[in-house]
Design a binder for these strands. Structure first.
Length: 407
DNA sequence: GTCAATTCACATGAAAGAGACCACGGTCTAGTG
DNA sequence: CTAGACCGTGGTCTCTTTCATGTGAATTGACGA
């Protein structure tokens, strides 16, 4: 019986009128043919990089802009075209793109240089070599190439936060040691104030040119969304006003188009699952909800045990709170007490309070909790910790934590 | 009543250790001709 | 004689601990009006 049900399910699924015609257009890695509303920026970048085609070293470039303002896309667009031309005219040009945020790829000095060296055809072990050895290998392979090399470092602020600015200093110095080739660096950062904390030498040599990508406004987002949805959805699959509302959401989130596109895709998926003929505005709301829920569940699930234990203690603290004191927040010390108790129950070695303090900060950064430092005067300084999980998700989160901790 | 000193309960920083993972070079061992 | 196993050394990386220092306002207590 179950079998027949299933096959009929698949049959109806196949017969069902799909809303999407090309969902790929709404996925994060989709590269559209042209980048709208960034003409000015693209032209500026192109002008700065153009000397590379004449075998002159272009200036180092720094690009700022909030997430989802088309920085990465624009740069990829330009570099792809440059490479095309270079190939046609047999110009010696090599462009390397590296996202520094990707964990385990390029978030430390060693890994970054190793990854770069790999891009130039060296095999570098993931660990074990001294860092300066890797530098040497990298230099060697660089120098073997003649011509211009452009290194694009995306989300460079992340790299700096973790690994310090020594890498950048070393990279900017490369040129003086190379005989045959010249290196230009393009840094892309979400953080507008990023260069503030930079060493002055690095700052001046790295940001010879600077460019800011302004956020898209609501109207521009609308048009971009319309274009993407025309490609992704079938005709008339969207109800009137859906795009407008979606754009409004994104504009509120300082013009993050990526987010808007995500929202649209999830809304579409929800509508499809509900067998609706059109994507309605309600689907958008549901989609926003779902994205947030999934995000929280994902992050909670992938946290290390100690983080989970810490989060679980925060939740338990609220669950078993003395109803008399009626406080919507907990303090670091209280959390730590509960945490120790939980560790004892689960058989986990309790960490020090110092460490827990850090874990709390991390959970705060992830947006799972909300921790605010307050001073209670004579009664010390601590954090006010609040859960920022919607109550509808809470039981599920508790279940995940209990399973993972084995309670 | 006013004002500076005190005090609490952590926050925050820096440094260093532990343990996992890995490459490399040297040494040992067993198999082969 | 040689390939492969095995070990010791030295390196990175992440997570922690230890030690030290910082912090902000309620409270305290001296002081003066």
């Amino acid at each position: 019986m179950a079998k027949r049900d299933l096959s009929s399910f698949f049959e109806t699924y196949l017969e069902k009128d799909q809303l999407f015609q090309n969902k790929g257009a709404l996925l994060a890695n989709y590269v559209p043919e042209c980048v709208d509303y960034r003409d000015e920026q693209i032209e500026a970048v192109a002008q700065i990089l153009a000397p590379a085609l004449k075998q002159d070293k272009p200036s180092n470039l720094f690009i700022y802009g909030k997430t989802g303002t088309g920085k990465t896309l624009s740069v990829q667009h330009i570099t792809a075209q440059m490479l095309e031309i270079a190939e046609k005219k047999e110009i010696q040009l090599h462009i390397t793109y590296l996202n520094c945020k990707l964990k385990k790829v390029a978030d430390t000095e060693y890994r970054l240089v190793a990854e770069l060296a790999r891009d130039f055809g060296r095999t570098i072990p993931p660990t074990g070599l001294p860092t300066d050895e890797v530098y040497k290998l990298f230099f060697d392979s660089l120098d073997k190439r003649k011509g211009i090399i452009i290194i694009v470092l995306d989300e460079i602020d992340q790299l700096l936060k973790k690994a310090g600015d020594e890498i950048l200093y070393n990279l900017t110095r490369i040129n003086s040691e190379l005989k045959n080739s010249q290196v230009a660096i393009i840094g892309i950062s979400n953080d507008l104030l990023f260069t503030e904390g930079l060493d002055a030498r690095v700052k001046s040599s790295l940001s010879e040119e600077e460019l800011v990508f302004p956020p898209y406004n609501a109207l521009q987002i609308q048009n971009i969304l319309r274009q993407r949805s025309d490609e992704a959805f079938k005709k008339d699959a969207l109800e009137q006003g859906v795009i407008e509302k979606c754009a409004a959401y994104a504009a509120r989130e300082h013009g993050d188009v990526r987010r808007a596109i995500d929202l649209l895709r999830v809304a579409g998926e929800l509508a499809e699952r509900q067998n609706c003929v059109k994507v309605q505005i309600e689907h958008l709301d549901a989609a926003e909800d779902k994205i947030e829920r999934d995000r929280i569940q994902d992050t909670v699930m992938t946290q290390p045990k100690q983080h989970q234990a810490c989060l679980f203690s925060i939740i338990t603290l609220f669950e078993h709170q003395d109803p008399k004191k009626k406080r919507p927040y907990g303090l670091t010390g209280e959390v730590y007490d509960v945490y120790k108790e939980i560790c004892r129950k689960v058989g986990l070695r309790p960490l020090t309070q110092r460490r827990i303090s850090d874990l709390i900060t991390e959970l705060d950064m992830l947006g799972i909790i909300n921790a605010k430092i307050i001073s209670k005067g004579r009664f010390g300084r601590t954090r006010e910790i609040q859960l920022s999980i919607p109550s509808s998700t809470k039981p599920k989160i508790i279940k995940i934590l209990q399973e993972s901790l084995g309670i």
